[in-house]
């Protein structure tokens, strides 16, 4: 069948596209955690100006469409601050990450706030500093509570990463439309690409559910408490 042989001919490009898509997703999720967690802590424990500033950040990045954010940073902000030479891949990953941080911070914030205040008081009365109490009492519990909600960020990020097509990142959707324009096998190629996205999506979710089970503490969790 010629569709299959075309897919095999193009397989190096497809593999590169999958790698770029997964790269975007993993880097963006990483940036999201690195920024989102401190933002959540700032929103719970920070002073009023800190909470206010983080609130504005979250409102802005959650309120704008990903396409507009990509255009804003790719055409406007990065060239404006002298970073116009950055490759599209980097800009895409950073924008997805900055936006992901806004979403993730709210997942972490909810989890931190779900830990009873008594735990902080108890930890402090045992002589822990505020920092140690957050690090070794609050966060180990909060992160486990946050994980199911956080797992939803993966499929969202994966489907949003396709919008990086708009600024020319050579990810899976860009590769797909390139193959379509070269081979004119429109539907089979699009459907194959959808199939790959679906596999990546549910495969990743499976992995995350595995992680959830692995780090679960017996007797601690929504079902038991």
């Amino acid at each position: 069948m010629d569709v299959l042989s075309i897919l095999i001919d193009w397989s190096p490009y497809i593999v590169a596209g999958i790698a770029a898509t997964l790269g975007l997703v993993l880097i963006a999720l990483g940036i999201g955690i690195l920024l989102g967690l401190p933002m959540a802590l700032g929103q719970v424990y920070g002073s009023r100006p800190v909470r206010w500033a983080i609130g504005i950040y979250v409102w802005f990045f959650r309120g704008l469409p990903i396409l507009v954010l990509l255009f804003l940073f790719w055409f406007g902000i990065f060239p404006g601050i002298g970073l116009g030479d950055l490759p599209a891949f980097v800009v895409g990953a950073v924008v997805l990450g900055l936006r992901g941080a806004a979403y993730q911070s709210q997942i972490f914030r909810g989890a931190i706030q779900s830990i009873g205040e008594g735990q902080m008081i108890a930890a402090r009365s045992l002589g822990m500093s505020r920092f140690i109490a957050i690090y070794s009492v609050i966060l180990p519990q909060a992160m486990r509570i946050a994980l199911p909600g956080w797992s939803n960020e993966y499929p969202n990020m994966l489907t949003d990463s396709a919008v990086c097509y708009a600024i020319g990142v050579a990810e899976l959707l860009t590769v797909t439309s390139r193959i379509v324009s070269q081979t004119y096998l429109t539907m089979p190629i699009f459907l194959a690409s959808a199939g790959i996205f679906i596999l990546l999506n549910y495969g990743g979710i499976k992995v995350l559910h595995g992680v959830e089970r692995r780090i679960a503490i017996p007797g601690f969790g929504s079902g038991a408490v």
Binding site: L158, A162, F197, I198, Y202
Partner: peptide, 11 residues
Amino acid sequence: KGTPLLLLLFI
């Protein structure tokens, strides 16, 4: 849910 919306629009 598994397919990016943009790809759905392309299809």
